[in-house]
Design a protein around this nucleic acid. Sequence first.
DNA 1: TAATTTTACATAAGTACTTATATAAACGTT
DNA 2: AACGTTTATATAAGTACTTATGTAAAATTA
Lengths: 316, 316
Amino acid sequence: MDTLRGLGELGLGSRLKRVSEYMMKETQIAYNHFNIDFDPYLFPIFKIIVHKDGITNSEIQSSLQYTQPAITQAINKLNSKDLIIHELDEIDKRKKIIHLSKKGKDLLKTIKPIWNSIDAVIKAYTLETSSSLIEHLNSLENKLNTKSFSKAIIEHVDMKVKQHIEIITYRNEYANYFYELNVEWLQAYFYVEPYDEEILGNPEKYIINKGGHIFFAKLDNKVVGTVALMPLSNKGDFELTKMAVSPEYRGHKIGQKLMQYCIDYAKSIGLPKLILYSSRKLENAIYIYKKYGFIEIPVEPNCHYKRCDIKMELVF
Amino acid sequence: MDTLRGLGELGLGSRLKRVSEYMMKETQIAYNHFNIDFDPYLFPIFKIIVHKDGITNSEIQSSLQYTQPAITQAINKLNSKDLIIHELDEIDKRKKIIHLSKKGKDLLKTIKPIWNSIDAVIKAYTLETSSSLIEHLNSLENKLNTKSFSKAIIEHVDMKVKQHIEIITYRNEYANYFYELNVEWLQAYFYVEPYDEEILGNPEKYIINKGGHIFFAKLDNKVVGTVALMPLSNKGDFELTKMAVSPEYRGHKIGQKLMQYCIDYAKSIGLPKLILYSSRKLENAIYIYKKYGFIEIPVEPNCHYKRCDIKMELVF
DNA sequence: TAATTTTACATAAGTACTTATATAAACGTT
DNA sequence: AACGTTTATATAAGTACTTATGTAAAATTA
């Protein structure tokens, strides 16, 4: 029994608070799902800084109508997350001028599609005619009860990405993306071994010209992921390798899309199986490999990669 | 410039929070105005206890959907304000059974008219058709910007009281109200002097039969205030005295209404002036006396009342 | 030009929640 | 009947604000 709803207009204040807190919490869940390190409560202030580069504490305060210490504290939080940088005003030394940092700009790129989806979901939930504010809140809460806000956001983002993602085959003007995407994640999780450097720097020599294949995931004309099918030395075995997704677009199942494409392609050209090498450190990746049917097999001692401690196989 | 509003549906969460906080704060202002010691955030839980006497912590929790510690803390707050009492359940000794205290019941009587007005004001502000939740919030905030929520509540309460208040003359079945109302405030601010006891216990002997007058303020059939015009020993002077308003109904200008009635009545029967005795401790009262034209005059040494340290006069 | 007031930002502490955890009574299981 | 689990409530600490106050620079006024 929802007593708060039963209080009608009298409980409006508490009601608004409850809906607000629910939405904030659910937005946090959606951000977490997409591995975005951001707090929903920082949204208005972050948005203002994005909109007006070089804004000051008190300018933010007057346009948001929060108290000044609230702004100072939020700025400190953004600072501790390295999303902004600030400098002192040359002519008025009391003023603190705030800019987006490199990391802040990167976050902006990553988070924008989520914001678009949040906007779309809220519009879908609230653009309807009703004859009182309470009635509107009732309708919104009913919808949120049937499908959680976070789930609706996540589904909307995924749907958008699904609609716009496209898998394309190698062309030499993409050689650089192949290198960059792979080096990025290797640096983040391990380090770039000489053998990586050699292959990533010469994909045509080591993959294409040896009968292998490289695919790219394109989202709205941006290359956001890659994967390769590389022929192995012994007989006609192929290795599924060099899979990488741009950090800004992780969480959108782009890796899985590339994987499915590779599997379908391998089947279509009559390969009997696929091999892959990985590291047990990458638990999520291993989980996905298993989901797609890969089974662990013994790893040979003289593996190309130092980081490799697991070998898997998918037999068609 | 209101940036939050500019964010549209995206800023809905922050928007709802802002409106909620504003309403809570303004409700607090309205409570304070009427000398009601209550926190708006306690409203839902207090309302539930009123509705279901003998409820437990976890029953409240499940019907409000706050977290359990939030309920425990709110209950502690209500306890520290003496608005509730609790006992342990005889059969399940973990359970804490909550009842409204005497003070809680008194508060309920006082606060109900305010709640009615809050409900009426919110309805007036939010019962309208619009095509989206954001549009509804815009409309509400526009209205709150032109007249603050607290002011709207206060005006509504005053209007209600004004409509329903009625001044009536003495009848002997009201003698008790005359005594009770006066003793209540004397005990709260000073103490009941023997001279008070004598007059309050025998209003007909000391006031009515000597040509004086006693008036009562009636609100919805409840006697909520009184005042007397008592003839003084020297010549035809009259003292405006024994003014008292029920604590539950203070803040509604009932005292001023009684005062105005006395002044009008005194004029109508051709009195040349009115005298009153008071104490400088009662700053608010003195302020009101001055507002109605009373001027300070020297107080005689052998005054009836010990508490008296100021004498005032209104000459027509 | 010196003294005073105002402005910009920071810091401290309080509030109404939250999550995490503790405690004690009641219940269920064998 | 003993033992683990669940339930009812309490306590502790963290969070995103608030109000109150401090500090230093700039602007205003005498």
